[in-house]
Design a protein around this nucleic acid. Structure first.
Lengths: 173, 173
DNA sequence: CTTGAGATGTTATAGTATAATGTCTCGTAG
DNA sequence: CTACGAGACATTATACTATAACATCTCAAG
């Protein structure tokens, strides 16, 4: 597990650092492809293309931003086009919704179910996803005491990424 | 700190259990009142009444639900009425937004700044707030490695509360 | 007095999401 | 072969959430 831990430790740092983004895209897209065919789900062109669009950056994209892109690329202009694709991608775990932003990001860890945690830059909207352990022990204790069955949870942390901080809060290039 | 820990351990259980809710209301309202006068902020009638409305239950209330109530009680019918009151209450830490629901709940711990964690029933929308420790160590490590400065964070856990589970998922009475 | 900040009033609009219904396609059971 | 049913997609309409922009009021400090 040495490599896994290494990856986990530096995932957010990597996501926020300039890097060859085509690698992210290819890696995640391949994995999604594989999972989809394995699970016998219908990874149609509009769904695949929606994922590709979301993979283009680590920033969260609003549904209507995605819709605009899909429309430009000939997939239709009505809201359900985007929301249906997003619903599918979220069901498969390929995409997460960042509630704080009402926006969506491609999952960087599509290979495993997990509790996502996000570092959300309030300035440039970049979103670094990290794999943290499932809900903290304290929360699980609380839930058990309350007879509450946790089905899914998320951690959303808002702040300033390194790039925006060093620019004094100015927008990212 | 024995009492504090006791409280912390059972907070969610208490919130989700039937209880004399007037105690919650009075306790939190008194505390808010005290804090407001201490901080010299203007706890105006509409702001106070908005908090009272949110305190009436442990369920999350949408902004337009609050607005409807405020309107019925003579405080005006336009969206800014509700959103301004909510902005104030959130700034003071008297109210939290539950992003998952686009809805608002009165804070049960208005006496201290904290990282809220919510147990959100997907069925009846009841929200139990618990005081967990600030962001888990793993997330802080990630953030530090990424040069990301966390300013605020929240944990939102969705699931089924005891009441809804025992009713087979039927709505709460 | 006056003036400036905070609170509120009012109108308009932007942004997010889903309901409801119909059509199309394609695999498959009969 | 063909009728059926499920899933995907098309289309229209509408509901819900949130903020911009500007006018007015009030009251305490200078």
């Amino acid at each position: 597990m040495a490599t896994a831990r290494q990856t986990e430790r530096t995932a957010a740092a990597e996501a926020m650092r300039p890097h060859d983004h085509r690698d992210c895209i290819r890696r995640v897209l391949d994995e999604a492809e594989r999972r989809a065919s394995e699970d016998r789900v219908n990874f149609t062109p509009v769904r695949r293309h929606a994922l590709e669009i979301l993979l283009e950056s680590h920033a969260a994209m609003p549904a209507y931003g995605l819709l605009k892109r899909l429309d430009e690329d000939g997939f239709g202009s009505q809201p359900p086009v985007a929301y249906r694709a997003l619903d599918f991608l979220m069901e498969q775990g390929f995409v997460h919704k960042v509630e704080r932003l009402n926006a969506f990001v491609a999952c960087m860890y599509p290979h495993e179910t997990h509790t996502p945690a996000f570092l959300i830059c309030r300035n440039c909207r970049s979103v670094a996803e990290t794999c943290v352990s499932p809900s903290p022990a304290a929360l699980l204790r609380e839930a058990r005491a309350a007879g509450f069955a946790i089905e899914r949870s998320v951690v959303e942390a808002e702040g300033l990424c390194r790039a925006c901080a060093s620019e004094g809060g100015a927008p990212c290039s």
